[in-house]
Design a protein around this nucleic acid. Structure first.
Lengths: 213, 213
DNA sequence: CCCTGTGAAAAGGTTCACAGCA
DNA sequence: TGCTGTGAACCTTTTCACAGGG
């Protein structure tokens, strides 16, 4: 496997955006693209794009641009796609089911193989192809499906418990949609997306604009 | 209205987290808290918390800590809560409905007053208290409800169109869950949350760990 | 003595100008 | 000449040490 030097986190966070643009471009039949154009499609400026790509290697051709298929392969490799990381969803309410319905996850190597929920009317049944298990079955689910990532979509009160069960079962990567700060050991990679925080940031800017008037 | 000097974006993004911790604390009956403890509850270190709060003003007492109710009021004010920013949801599928069900938004001043969807079986009906309108009614919906924020939960192919209609109707703050880069005028505040990007970042780290072995 | 508030240093990220290869 | 690759400057953010009030 190719080894990359250290890639800055900010760059890692943009690679999926570049990759999506490259996949879209490939489907149009284009074969090369300049940093200027790819940056435009990705919503960044051209020097930043070139700097980001330079962390992966030197894949462009001066005077020409980047070969779309080649660059796509390299970005994809850097992100570790080609690997498959099975996902378990904790909390199978509206949000959990929205994720399960989202075909893009499986396509990108993150198949949702199981869900955990406390609702006895859901346990033992399958929704959108995803079997629902009781919380106590977490260890068996993780081991049985080779789960690499846990996604927490439970109500607030149940989210820390879900995180604890994921960690106890050996899961070391967690994506949480819970609005509270979860406590996990240092060796667990926890990412948190709080939807109402995003709205509050928009609200802050709205207020600022209003103050200016 | 109190005016704050310039608050760094990184700080603004953390204020909602502090606020939530303070609200939780208030409900426990505690009256003061140290920066160390509040930082712990917020998942940051103490000097960062103090630096962040210092941008708002000097609300602590040396040797004691912060008064929870007072600090809560000040953080809340800085974020512009107390204002109400009505929200329209574009695309009322699983994700859109998950948001509509989420009572926390209304509580925080972001009531979801309307939804837009193309599905004729949904248009004209109300789900979870949210009336669904046709895309062509966007201008009337925005004006009628005084919409300040649009949230895009449509399928990928419809997201740019939804953004265009929001902008045309005068909405200047947009939260997008679409995985593609949306194009909007410079004066529009666009925040983007791509769920599969988050998984890809986790996947990158998983791969890195695997490479180390 | 305790804990906040803050300048200064360090780290991380972005921008820019231009060197260098096709 | 055209466009990439990158060192250096710049800006933002984080960390740290400690001054200073209660």
């Amino acid at each position: 496997m190719q080894s990359y030097g250290h890639i800055p986190e900010a760059t890692v966070a943009r690679l999926p955006i570049y990759l999506r643009a490259l996949v879209d471009l490939a489907s149009t039949g284009a074969s090369t693209i300049s940093s200027e154009e790819l940056a435009e499609l990705s919503g960044v400026n051209a020097p930043k794009l070139r700097k980001d790509l330079s962390y992966l290697g030197t894949y462009g051709t001066r005077g020409v641009g980047y070969d779309i298929d080649y660059l796509r392969f390299e970005v994809s490799s850097a992100l570790g796609l080609g690997n498959t990381w099975p996902v378990v969803v904790c909390g199978f309410g509206n949000l959990g089911r929205a994720l399960a319905n989202h075909t893009g996850f499986t396509q990108r190597g993150f198949p949702i193989l199981a869900a955990i929920d406390t609702d006895p009317t859901k346990i033992g049944h399958t929704f959108d192809g995803v079997p629902v298990h009781a919380p106590g079955e977490m260890p068996a689910v993780v081991t049985g499906h080779g789960i690499a990532i846990g996604v927490i979509c439970t109500p607030v009160g149940a989210s820390q418990g879900a995180a604890d069960r994921l960690v106890a079962a050996g899961v070391r990567s967690i994506l949480s949609f819970s609005p509270i700060v979860l406590t996990v050991p240092d060796d667990v990679d926890l990412r948190s997306v709080d939807l109402s925080t995003q709205l509050q940031i928009l609200g802050f800017h709205l207020q600022e604009s209003a103050d200016d008037e």
